[in-house]
Design a protein around this nucleic acid. Structure first.
Lengths: 342, 342
DNA sequence: CTGAAAGCGCTTACAG
DNA sequence: CTGAAAGCGCTTACAG
């Protein structure tokens, strides 16, 4: 029923040559094997007349390479409201993939559902890509280990529980920007700062705190109060925490605390930045209640680009060891911070 | 040097069976051909021990299907500041692709660069996908025609210069929301409305104008003034145009006029919405100077979803004709519109 | 219940 | 300069 596509053999038949010759002509390998112009023209004409297009799958099989970079996210993209979009990464990845002449394959099926099969069948789709980029912080170690064991070229954007010398990771260095943000507040005259965070065990939060502490330590009379999720649970608690420590500026280190914090601040009728200066050490630019917040930009696109660069090298086999690559953040001053007024 | 991956033959050898049997066992086709539990277990064990993963490329070749949906954008994504992001589409596409058990391949190489080859070699990568979704309004007809001629399953998100019965397109119906937006302004007491647009020859702008006109015609004393890009070119021109027509509310129909219009309004020191109500008939949510504008939401995600649904049916061959599918927009009331005060 | 064979559509040595 | 053959790693009738 369905009109079959013309195949290489059809072209060969029509041009009156062998299949090998068709392949040679159409792959522009003129330099390697010389072919008479006459034959060449006959083949090209036949291909054109037949509307021939080589089957890329067959080419991949015989070439052993697909020129595809895989992309997999451990974080859920759905529902739409998710704060863990990976599109900024994808942007950088796609751009760099274009440069390197790779297409990008988005793996949609979740690995968790795929690992059921005894011999890890589900992962086989990863073999479709010459190498893959994973996104996610501290992904399930079992799954990650299974992936690593396969020996496929892999780069993780984010941190993992594995040693940095067994897997390539791309991460942000949070220290310089946390330092810069804190300096910014101190320069504005603030001395009593709050640092709000959910889980201080996580490496990136430790880094942030490190940068903040450094700036605090350098400033005369500066004091830091660490606030946790519990503080946000009740309006009164939070108000007290701010009052007791005379906090005039708040550094929000945790994406998860973003929404609850904003809610609490609104309920307390605190004006930003008149009553309280606010710095977002992490932020989702697509979901901002402030048009121009003071925040740390994560440069996800750049991380994506760096990931591709690393992956391509890994595929080429020009790399021996694995390592953690740090990408700088960027501190952006907006209007959620203002000079301290007593 | 590089340790070759185990192949099906390796598993067969180890399990002491034929390659066909390995395939049968590992593909879970137990129902079709009965295989003894003993053999089955031996095969699975061998596969596990060897860390065998089937080569998906070989499977694709023999199956003749890839379970990949291609994605191609006619619009440039770069530079980053581009207003024509396609990520909202991708979101809906990916989600629905997950449901339908397809992976998504992003074609990164631009078609324009690929069409050089006589026999349109570059397009062959489209054959890697079982079907593809294209995004873009009025894409280059030559390229689109070449694509259509290949007879590949295709769905275009956007409008084209081709008749609607030769290609499946997914478009927004702009009339209802333009009508609703205009009604909203009229209900707020506005009577002198401006409609600012760049190129009224485009179908979607005509549709918008159609909806607006309908609401205008229904309201006593309502008047519409159409403003063009020229009006924006000089501050004085624009001020005059607003004054002369006593315009108290503006409907912005064109994405391209967004930035220049905002600039002009700011320079004229017009307060929104006190001095002028503003409705965006199209908007990029990731680039809003107003936190909650009154605007028409394009539901790109839904268009992506619909495109996948249509494409999957096309691939299945359950469709005969082609058609234009309309997806409704959504009118969202924000705070850039307010009641008319003389 | 299992094996041997053909074939998916290509590319690439290898002969001539 | 060109053809015949082997092979990429699978699946699927077809025999037994």
């Amino acid at each position: 029923m369905k009109s079959k596509r013309p195949t290489q053999a059809d072209v060969a038949r029509r041009a009156g040559v062998s299949r090998g010759t068709v392949s040679l002509v159409l792959n522009q390998t003129e330099y390697r094997v010389p072919i008479s112009t006459e034959t060449r023209e006959r083949v090209v004409a036949a291909a054109q007349e037949l509307g021939y297009m080589p089957n890329p799958v067959a080419q991949m099989l015989v070439r052993g390479t697909t020129r595809i970079l895989g992309f997999y996210s451990f974080e859920e993209t759905f529902p739409y409201s998710s704060e863990d979009f990976y599109y900024p990464y994808l942007m950088g990845i796609e751009r760099e993939a274009t440069n390197q002449d790779y297409n990008v394959l988005l793996f949609t099926r979740k690995l968790a559902e795929l690992t059921q099969n005894g011999y890890s069948d589900g992962m086989s789709s990863f073999r479709l890509a010459d190498g893959s980029i994973l996104v996610g912080n501290y992904p399930n170690p079992i799954i990650l280990e299974a992936l690593l064991k396969e020996g496929l070229p892999l780069v993780l954007i984010g941190r993992s529980t594995f040693p940095t010398n067994v897997i390539d990771t791309i991460v942000n260095d949070h220290r310089p920007c946390s330092y810069a943000a804190t300096r910014h507040l101190i320069d504005l005259g603030h001395r009593q700062l709050g640092f709000i965070v959910d889980d201080l065990n996580l490496a990136y939060h430790k880094e942030r705190l490190f940068g903040v502490r450094k700036a605090i330590d350098e400033a005369a009379g500066a004091k830091l109060t660490i606030l946790s999720r519990e503080e946000l649970s009740s309006l009164e608690n939070f108000r007290q925490a701010l009052r007791r420590n005379e906090i005039s500026a708040l550094l929000c280190a945790d994406r998860k605390l973003f929404t609850p914090m904003i809610e609490v601040l609104q309920k307390l009728a605190l004006r930003i930045p008149q009553d309280l200066s606010l710095v977002f050490l992490v932020i989702n630019t697509w979901n901002m209640p402030f048009t121009t917040p003071t925040y740390v930009k994560l440069n996800r696109g750049i991380k994506g680009k760096v990931a591709v660069e690393r992956l391509v090298q890994r595929i080429a086999g020009t790399l021996d060891g694995h390592e953690q690559i740090q990408v700088p953040c960027e501190f952006v001053i907006g209007n959620t911070t203002a000079a301290f007024t007593r």
